[in-house]
Design a protein around this nucleic acid. Structure first.
Lengths: 233, 233
DNA sequence: CGCCCGCAGTGATGCCCATCACAGCGCAAA
DNA sequence: TTTGCGCTGTGATGGGCATCACTGCGGGCG
């Protein structure tokens, strides 16, 4: 395994396993398997009963989505290198509620529940990180519910764009990835046509800009205000 | 402390601390303080920075709610004896995102973060229960997002009622508590007036019944189908 | 007792937004 | 090149539901 060092470097960033001691990490890696996904390929399927593994993202990006009873796609989140997905079903032994698929060539580490439990036993302190990660997921979802219930289209789309900003640089104007308008709609909870209309509007008002299929935020502060308060003052 | 035995009995039911050994439980109880709440009294305030405690409910019921940017109330959940609330902020050290207040006379146990951490260190296995509880919260919230985005009023209200059914008996027709129509609206994400309209409709169609301010489910299966699939077939 | 306030019912109004429909457009495969 | 497909822009339409406005009701409190 020649990119072992690289794996470790990635793991250092991750929330799940940050606190593992080196030999525990060795053990975990030995029990896990690396999988390379092509664009569009899924690693977890909604409804699957055998949810006995979690997925650690080594590189690339995945989208976590579900198909509602009416057939509409709902994108819950995008996750990229260093994140863990699929731990919910692994923890509570219920069927998968969401589908995880790669939005670009992506490699992941499939961690079986047994390996996770072994790591938890060997180093209980590492579970604090897991709990923190879960707590922030709950927090994030609370915000989504609030936004869905009280805001109109524009603030919701603004919030979706803010969530796509690279968390690494707090003043950046570049997005982590550039989904299609359909996906943006499924992420923000609005119809695709209205994504188009809002983007046109924002572009001519100088809030965003589009250079060859990529979106760039011009007035980040405006979008953040909109995302937080739901209206321009 | 004469109702000590009773406390223990409650704790046994709880998800948070089920796995604690007796002497660890003693320790946790010694570090915690019991608080009795009157109807309407709050124990956790949205926005509060000092989120260094969680709340274990000994008896009674609380509602977990937040006030959105537009001033509308959003009820995230109702919790009753044996549940734990407020652990999110305790785990991730962020401000409180929700308010917790009693809907009836309620006694709770305030567990400081330090006591929680001590219990975690003393008995790491107990953390598995905490993680499972958090996982099911995430799962529940995913369902709420799905429901908000794809269903119309009636299925959303149906889902709210189903969530208020007593989880203890799986075929029961009685609700755990009987909120006002305003609160039902805030729970289901619809306007109070429409709760009224839907209830009238359902009552004359024999789906629910109202005897002196209390609501009783008549056709539970109908509501469950509506809640799951969004339309009657 | 009478007052007031919170809760419930119900119609009218309007607007936000999903949906339908269709037209360009770039790109990849045939 | 031609065909087809996925993505994008834009108008028209209609319905669902929030909101407003008002009435009635009961119960707690002065």
């Amino acid at each position: 395994m020649d990119d072992y060092e690289q794996l470790i470097a990635r793991l250092e960033r991750g929330t799940l396993l940050r606190a593992l001691a080196p030999q525990q990490l060795d053990d975990l890696l030995a029990r896990s398997t690396r999988v390379d996904l092509k664009r569009g390929q899924t690693i977890i399927d909604q409804g699957d009963e055998n949810g006995d593994f979690a997925v650690f993202i080594l590189s690339g990006t995945v989208k976590v989505s579900m198909v509602s009873a009416t057939g509409r796609e709902i994108i819950l989140s995008y996750s990229s290198a260093g994140d863990v997905v699929g731990e919910i079903a692994m923890l509570d032994q219920q069927p998968r509620t969401a589908t995880v698929s790669a939005t670009e060539p992506t490699s992941v580490l499939v961690i079986p529940a047994s390996a996770f439990q072994a790591a938890a036993l060997a180093n209980p302190a590492s579970m604090a990180g897991v709990m923190r990660a879960l707590a922030s997921r709950v927090r994030q979802l609370n915000l989504v519910v609030e936004s869905d219930r009280t805001f109109s289209m524009a603030p919701r789309l603004a919030r979706a764009l803010v969530r796509l900003l690279d968390p690494a640089d707090p003043n950046g104007r570049r997005l982590r990835l550039h989904p299609s308008q359909s996906d943006l709609g499924a992420f923000a909870g609005i119809a695709r046509e209205n994504v188009s209309r809002l983007m046109s509007d924002w572009e001519e008002r100088g809030i965003v800009r589009r250079c060859d299929r990529a979106l760039e935020i011009v007035d980040r502060e405006y979008l953040e205000l909109l995302a937080e308060f739901g209206a321009e003052e």
